[in-house]
Amino acid sequence: MSPKESNSYSAPMVYKSFAILKEVAKAQGTLGVSDISRQLNFNKSTVYGVTQAFLDLGVLRQDESTKKFRLGPALIQLSNQSLASVSLKDIARSFMMKLAQDFAGTVFLGCFDEYGITIIEKVDSPEDLKISAPVGTRLPFFSGSAAKSFLANLDETIQRRIITEKVLPKFTNKTINNIEDYLADLKQVRKQGYATDFEEYIHGVNAVSVPLVDIRGTLLGAIWIVGFSNSFTKDRMQQAAVAAMESAKQITRIIG
């Protein structure tokens, strides 16, 4: 069927909805209903109806004070699922293998949505005694360094809202579950470019994580390296963080 033929079966509201999404994506956080209506020459009631449906579905988020829109977690989830199926895993695996070999730890690649973290690829430690989990494993939302890599890339107002709504859990006696302390930790993560977990998620296990962020600033996922606390020490984790950040740069450079 040619494009012209297919137009006879088109649904105008679908095209309008997609146009609204594209407009929001181009100007994240700066457009409200009236702005979109004016720029696209759409009826304001149409824009309102579409954006309300998108808010309900998690496709958009709206700032409570400014009423401006941003893309929501549902789109991020779909994007992550698409990337997870082929390209990101394929590109990242060779870098993960080197990290696992160099630091004798298990290396995970994961993506995020509003419910938690999904492991989409892993390379086990070469050591006989190792920490592992199968691909497809779902981790709790605030689990260790990987969660920090995700949250640190969000605006602080969004961080605070998520933390308040979901409530910080207490996985171990070293878990940070005070909101202000956790927010301060996220600020440090954003500044230094990597996140650490010193037995905060699992007793006797340390981890370091780096985000994978494309050239548009979109978070694609994270890579984290996990090892036993008696061997994967603070100094070793620092070295691993530097290597992982370099790997992340190369991975996202390839992805573009």
Score class of each variant (00 low, 15 high):
1 M>R: 11
5 E>L: 13
7 N>R: 11
8 S>Q: 14
12 P>K: 11
13 M>Y: 11
15 Y>W: 07
16 K>T: 15
19 A>G: 02
24 V>T: 08
24 V>D: 14
25 A>S: 13
27 A>Y: 01
33 V>E: 15
38 R>Y: 02
39 Q>P: 00
40 L>G: 12
40 L>P: 01
43 N>H: 15
45 S>L: 11
50 V>Y: 00
53 A>C: 05
54 F>C: 08
55 L>P: 00
55 L>S: 00
59 V>F: 13
60 L>S: 00
69 F>H: 03
73 P>I: 05
73 P>R: 06
75 L>A: 04
79 S>H: 07
83 L>H: 10
84 A>W: 06
86 V>E: 15
88 L>H: 03
89 K>Y: 01
90 D>K: 15
90 D>C: 02
91 I>S: 03
98 K>I: 12
104 A>R: 02
109 L>A: 12
109 L>H: 01
111 C>E: 06
112 F>T: 08
118 T>N: 11
121 E>G: 01
123 V>G: 06
123 V>A: 02
127 E>T: 08
130 K>G: 06
130 K>H: 15
132 S>N: 12
132 S>E: 14
132 S>C: 09
134 P>Q: 03
135 V>E: 15
135 V>P: 06
138 R>V: 07
140 P>L: 05
145 S>R: 04
145 S>T: 07
147 A>E: 04
154 L>P: 07
157 T>F: 07
158 I>G: 00
159 Q>V: 14
160 R>I: 09
162 I>M: 13
168 L>T: 09
169 P>Q: 06
171 F>A: 13
172 T>Y: 09
172 T>F: 10
178 N>K: 13
182 Y>R: 03
187 K>M: 04
188 Q>N: 12
191 K>W: 01
191 K>R: 13
191 K>V: 02
192 Q>Y: 04
193 G>Y: 07
198 F>G: 02
200 E>A: 14
201 Y>R: 12
203 H>A: 09
207 A>T: 13
209 S>T: 00
211 P>F: 03
213 V>K: 09
213 V>H: 03
214 D>F: 08
218 T>R: 10
221 G>W: 00
222 A>P: 03
222 A>C: 14
227 G>Q: 03
229 S>G: 04
231 S>Y: 06
231 S>A: 11
234 K>R: 10
236 R>Y: 10
236 R>N: 13
242 V>K: 13
244 A>I: 10
246 E>P: 00
251 I>Q: 11
251 I>G: 06
